[in-house]
Amino acid sequence: MAATQFLDTDTGRRLAYHLTPASSDATAPTVVFLGGLKSDMEGTKAIHLEAWAKARGLGFLRFDYSGHGESSGTFEEGCIGDWHQDTLAAVQALTKGQILPVGSSMGGWQALLLARTLPERVAGLVTIAAAPDFTEDGYWANFTDTQKAELETRGQVELPSDYMEPYVITKRMIEDGRNHLVLRDPLVMSMPVRCLQGTADTAVSTETALRLLDHASCADMRLQLVKDADHRFSDPACLALIETAVAEVLGLSGADGIS
């Protein structure tokens, strides 16, 4: 496997990344994988999709947000706006032309922010258990009065996770998240969008997926609900569905597209 490379951004952060260049004759958009909260670029979906793209001569970028994986900083220092800055920095420095973001969980929110900020470069969008506005609608809306008081006095609270050690949620993350909400104001997307959501997902509900579908203005947007799939969405059947969604948005078919 190729060695990890690093990008020093204008914000002073150092981002770890892996970039697979497109084959010389490839004209398709570069696929950009955007991971979830506290995930890193070595996850099953990112690695699988990278191999799939490489086999088809497609460009592919995966990277770690600051405070994640091999990138600089700590998770507790970060917030949605910081990771949006990281995403913009990676895309603008490491890719050219059209891109196709594939966003998982929090990465789905990041993909929507990216499409809103750089609509001219986003040729299509695929989300997997997208979690837009979760700091407000998931965390803040469900905090108890005690947790809200703790957030104010200590500046952070700890929340249990089904997948790893507790999440440390800071006051800064909550307040910054309010500056990046996408489900309150019009969300216009001129590119094709495919959303995947498992019905057994305990981190992101099907109601969230339906809310995004209903809220967005998009002429070509589809939501696929997958019975009994969980938040990881990483078993072979789910990985095949991700391939199919990306291939469909790219306009690929048959042996050159869907495996």
Rank of each mutant, 00 (worst) to 15 (best):
L94V: 11
S24F: 11
D185P: 00
V226W: 04
L37E: 12
D185Q: 15
F233W: 05
H215C: 11
G78A: 07
A28F: 04
A89D: 08
G251M: 04
L100F: 08
S105K: 10
W109D: 06
A131E: 05
N142E: 10
D64G: 03
W109S: 08
M191C: 14
L114R: 06
S24I: 13
L252G: 05
R116H: 03
A247F: 02
A229P: 08
D185T: 13
M106G: 05
A22Y: 07
L114A: 06
T9E: 01
Q110E: 10
L239N: 03
W83Q: 09
S39Q: 12
T202S: 10
G257R: 10
F75Q: 09
V91R: 13
G78N: 02
T27S: 14
E150C: 00
K38D: 08
R13W: 10
A55P: 08
S205N: 02
L187T: 03
K54R: 15
H18A: 12
N179P: 00
L252P: 07
C79R: 04
T30W: 09
P21K: 09
A3K: 14
I99D: 03
V31A: 09
Q197D: 05
W52G: 03
D82C: 02
R56S: 01
Q147W: 07
D235G: 06
S105F: 12
G103I: 12
L34M: 11
L118P: 06
